[in-house]
């Protein structure tokens, strides 16, 4: 079991190293875009993979984060960090409002309520004047990190985003492996039983929803600073669908799966721009193949394979190994 743990630690080390060298290997803006959407998908996965709630309106939080950050940085002239925090805060508040109403229903009704709210946000963004309507909110200044380092430098911007990503990713990882995460898994596995054990299931769902909305908002805020614009595509329901695709492709209910999914989807969209609208056909085909042949997603399948080869059976888990108490 401790071998499995050290392998896990090694895996994390490799991932961080990859993140550090990435901007020297690929185009930094591409890498930043991947990080933002990876964070978005990871936030979404906290809800779908670990709580069992399929939200179909997460674009609202990504978009709200992006637009509010743009407004704060461009119109109010706030420093970048505060602009990002404002975007995140508004997404969090929206999450609290939408969540408290949506969690009263489950399954397809939950999905439809979240979709409805997201469409409401889309409509507002189209109608309000400060958002720039169809043109989007353009010319968002990147500003300076800590008031010192100009973020117009791609590498500085990259490490700013990477740091935020790592922080947020740590929050997600910790939330999943916390007493709270334990209850969430119980709710996902058997909601009536969790209720009968005395857990106010709805309150746990709401906290998970708000946490997920906040981190999705952070992803949108960072994206707006990176690309220097917020556009309607960030609040469009296509976005809400795309994040489902990323999560399932990479592996729902795995910590790194959604990031892998985001990388693949963003890469497909980027490197297949020559083929025009065929991109959606190709991503659609990839999605169908994924769901039909490896339903656990890429990371889910790999994890199952590793677990099998380590324990011989893949049936036991290391939850109570005494070696881990130190």
């Amino acid at each position: 079991m401790s071998r499995l743990r050290s392998l896990e630690a090694l895996g994390w080390g490799v991932l961080v190293a990859v993140g550090i060298v990435a901007p020297f290997v690929v185009y930094p803006v591409f890498a930043m875009n991947v990080l933002c959407l990876a964070l978005f998908a990871s936030a979404f996965n906290l809800l779908l993979g670990y709580t069992g709630l399929l939200s179909f309106g997460h674009a609202a939080f990504l978009g709200a984060g992006a637009y509010v950050t743009g407004l704060a940085a461009k119109t109010w002239g706030l420093p970048t960090e505060l602009a990002v925090l404002s975007g995140t805060a508004v997404a969090t508040a929206l999450g609290a409002i939408f969540g408290s109403l949506a969690i009263r229903r489950s399954g397809i009704y939950f999905a439809m309520i979240t979709l409805g709210f997201a469409q409401l946000v889309y409509f507002l963004v189209v109608q309000m004047s400060w958002t720039g309507g169809e043109d989007g909110l353009q010319g968002i200044p990147r500003g300076k990190a800590l008031g010192l380092f100009p973020l117009d430098q791609q590498l500085t911007m990259y490490y700013f985003v990477f740091t935020a990503f790592l922080g947020a990713f740590f929050v997600i990882h910790r939330a999943i492996h916390s007493p709270f995460g334990h209850v969430l898994r119980a709710v996902r596995e058997n909601e009536p039983r969790a209720l009968s054990l005395g857990y106010d299931v709805d309150r746990y769902k709401l906290v998970a929803f708000v946490l997920s909305a906040a981190l999705a908002g952070l992803a949108g805020s960072l994206k707006a600073v990176v690309l220097q614009f917020a556009s309607l595509s960030d609040v469009h329901w296509h976005r809400s669908g795309e994040v489902v695709l990323m999560t399932l492709l990479g592996g729902m209910g795995t910590v790194v799966g959604p990031s892998v999914g985001a990388l693949i989807v963003v890469a497909l969209e980027n490197y297949l721009t020559d083929v025009g609208s065929w991109v959606t056909v190709i991503t659609g085909a990839v999605f169908v193949v994924c769901v039909l042949s490896f339903r656990r997603g890429i990371v889910g399948e790999v994890r199952a394979l590793v677990a099998r080869s380590f324990t011989g059976a893949g049936r036991k888990r290391s939850s109570s190994s005494p070696s881990s108490s130190g």
Partner: peptide, 30 residues
């Protein structure tokens, strides 16, 4: 009524942990 994807000991822990009063603590380690 069990939690199928959790181990047996984790199933019991779900019930036991309520008394700790930390069930909303998403920042605490497991």
């Amino acid at each position: 009524a069990v939690f199928p994807a959790l181990t047996a000991v984790e199933n019991i822990r779900v019930a036991l942990q309520r008394k700790l009063g930390t069930s909303f603590h998403f920042w605490r380690t497991e």
